[in-house]
């Protein structure tokens, strides 16, 4: 147990199929505290599915997943408790349409009894300040731009004080001019020491922020390593091919 405390996320031999489509094959990965892991790879390579397994939005067919030492596939584990410690940011933001900006951020802490209403509101305003949206607190989420929505989504995920953050292609649905603001917030978060697992197509960002880059292809981790090595000296042929395509574009 003490050994596993050292790793935030421990994944071993995970497999997942949708019918005859084998989307994840024998995936094993450890993520350490304060580490920023960026997952890259072509669409359909399984990286999003893998990310969604870490908080059980998807169930693996076989394998082991430990988060903070908890076996999340064990029926006895209270998955809701584990999820409180894992923030997640989605490609399509998924802000709650029936609430204002600040209500989105406050909902979970108040509902789960983590804070009183006043304290939660104070904390929510601080978080909105951090992502640069303090002035939008009382607006409806429909009136925000995509980039603003994604920053609110990050604030919402942070409201439960998680110690791991998952990002599922957080900038893919954004207009290009909005991408920078969101990435800046994520960089600040990385600098603050948050453990982060990020699925993205932003190679520049990966180079800059990642402690480790993991390349997914055909449901397998083909290669992983420090960004320097992955981007400048890729060994795997498929990674080389992928990078040449992405860098051209």
């Amino acid at each position: 147990m003490s050994e596993q405390k050292q790793v935030k996320v421990h994944v071993e031999d995970v497999n997942k199929s949708y019918g005859s489509n084998h989307v994840l094959r024998d995936i094993s990965l450890d993520v350490h505290p304060n580490e920023v892991v960026v997952m890259i790879g072509p669409s359909g390579s399984g990286k999003s599915t893998f990310l969604r397994m870490l908080n059980q939005l998807e169930m693996p067919d076989s394998g082991t997943i430990l988060v903070d030492g908890y076996d999340i596939l064990d029926k006895k584990t209270d998955i809701n408790k584990v999820r409180e410690n894992i923030g997640m940011v989605f490609q399509n933001f998924n802000l709650f349409n029936n609430y204002t900006v600040i209500q989105n951020v406050m909902l979970a802490p108040v509902q789960l009894g983590k804070m009183g209403k006043e304290e939660a509101e104070k904390r929510a305003r601080e978080l909105l300040e951090t992502v640069g949206l303090a002035d939008k607190a009382d607006m409806s989420v429909g009136s925000l731009s995509g980039g603003q929505k994604q920053r609110v989504a990050i604030a919402r995920a942070l409201a439960m004080d998680p110690d791991i953050m998952l990002f599922d292609e957080p900038t893919s649905a954004l207009d290009p001019e909005m991408v920078g603001d969101v990435l800046d917030v994520m960089k600040d978060l990385a600098r603050s020491g948050m453990t982060m697992i990020i699925v993205t197509h932003e190679m520049g960002f990966a180079k800059q922020v990642a402690d480790r880059v993991v390349f997914f292809e055909s449901g397998k981790i083909q290669e992983s390593g420090e960004p320097e090595q992955i981007f400048n000296a890729p060994k795997n042929a498929r990674l080389q091919e992928f990078l040449s395509k992405v860098m051209q574009a």
Binding site: N55, L57, N80, K81, V82, R83, E84, I86, G87, M88, F90, N92, N94, L95, F96, N97, L107, A108, Q111, L112, A153, R156, A157, M160
Partner: peptide
């Protein structure tokens, strides 16, 4: 209602 709404709520730890 968009499926993502439920996923977002559950991912925050809401039962």
């Amino acid at each position: 209602v968009d499926k993502g709404q439920m996923e977002a709520a559950r991912s925050l730890g809401l039962p």
